[in-house]
């Protein structure tokens, strides 16, 4: 049956390439008429253990949203395997995934609570939907369960009848979390769950998420661009740049002694309360285009403060630097 020694989720060499629409010339040009490919996720390995909380950090356009959609199985990978509890789920087409038993075990909290709630559904309708469709609950069993979950996310019962526009940002976030944890999934993906919230509410939601993980024993994949927040909830961190993982390791190590120049730049860009950050690393220029990138050069080259000729000749792969700490860089920082 299910092999308990396997990690909960194991993603191997997964790629997602999107063909780009070529700008319309009416007469097809004979030569070089190959469609350009956007390499959104380009050979990513990741694994998440049972009960583990993993952070995925990167800036917009780095492919983290695509990676998330591959893992939630609402998008089909171009290549690679996705195994969940030892079973291959990467091969199940996304259009059929709503009806497989794994659907209820992989759930997600969305970034913008306003956008991710149907404006015509009350909080109760929203929370009820997965319970009805995937949990086969109805009648009093359903309404009991809804109220239990509302209590779990500390949402007052009287708010359940409200529509999203009648709820505050924090309350909407709770509805989104309630919907995601209603079926007690074993893997919960959190896509910037606090990005749209005020700081004062953010703290409450982060505490709630930490409590829920303990109570329900879920694994988290926490996606964010804010390392300060990722660090609060995650055991392990992965940093993504242009479709690839450039550094991964225990949160503490990555945070305190980043090895990849991009991680260092990312960390130093976060404004801290300490006033003027010392020795800031600033990235110049724009990222390389993810459309048909040159496979023979480092994608960070051009913005990298340490870039050398070697970086244009081969693309670095993830190399273990210390136990559990891997970096994809030709010239990693020393610990």
């Amino acid at each position: 049956m299910i092999d308990d020694t396997q990690p909960l989720l194991q993603v191997e060499q997964v790629r997602k390439l999107f063909p780009l629409k070529t700008a319309g010339s009416l007469v097809p040009l004979r030569a070089a008429r190959r469609t350009a490919l956007l390499h959104a996720v380009d050979g990513v390995d990741l694994s998440i253990g049972r009960g583990e909380s993993v952070g995925l950090v990167g800036e917009s356009g780095c492919g983290k949203s695509t990676l998330v959609r591959l893992i939630t199985r609402t998008l089909d990978p171009t290549e690679g395997s996705i195994r969940f509890r030892g079973e291959d789920i990467g091969g199940i087409p996304a259009s059929r995934f709503a009806r497989v038993p794994q659907r209820k075990l992989i759930q997600m909290v969305f970034q913008d609570p306003t956008d991710s709630l149907n404006p015509r559904y009350t909080a109760r309708d929203t929370i009820a939907e997965p319970l009805r469709l995937l949990g086969n609950l109805s009648g009093t069993a359903l309404s009991d369960r809804i109220e239990a979950i509302a209590a779990l996310v500390q949402m007052p019962r009287e708010l359940l009848g409200r529509f999203p526009h009648q709820l505050s940002g924090g309350q909407k976030a709770r509805v989104g979390i309630a919907r995601a944890v209603a079926l007690e999934p074993s893997l919960l993906i959190l896509d910037e769950p606090t990005a749209a919230l005020d700081v004062s509410v953010q703290a409450v939601i982060l505490h709630l998420l930490a409590d829920l993980r303990e109570k329900l024993g879920m694994s988290y994949l926490f996606v964010s661009h804010d390392l300060n927040i990722v660090r609060l909830l995650c055991d392990r961190v992965m940093v993504m740049y242009l479709g690839r993982i450039v550094e991964s390791g225990p949160a503490r190590q990555v945070f305190e002694a980043p090895r990849h120049p991009y991680t260092r730049a990312l960390l130093s860009a976060i404004p801290g309360l300490g006033g003027e950050a010392s020795r800031r690393i600033r990235l110049e220029g724009d990222p390389t285009s993810p459309v048909d990138p040159d496979p023979g050069r480092c994608r960070f080259h051009g913005r990298c403060p340490k870039g050398q000729d070697a970086c244009t000749r081969s693309s670095p792969s993830l190399v273990q630097m210390a136990p559990g700490h891997a970096v994809a860089c030709h010239f990693p920082e020393s610990a």
């Binding site: 703290a203 505490h207 300060n228 909830l233 976060i270």
Partner: peptide, 23 residues
């Protein structure tokens, strides 16, 4: 003081992150 305490920063951990009560 509350606002400062609720803002995550390099040295903070989840326990020290306190919410501002009320709205």
């Amino acid at each position: 003081a509350r606002l400062i305490a609720t803002t995550p920063h390099a040295g903070s951990d989840l326990r020290s992150l306190a919410a501002i009560p009320g709205y």
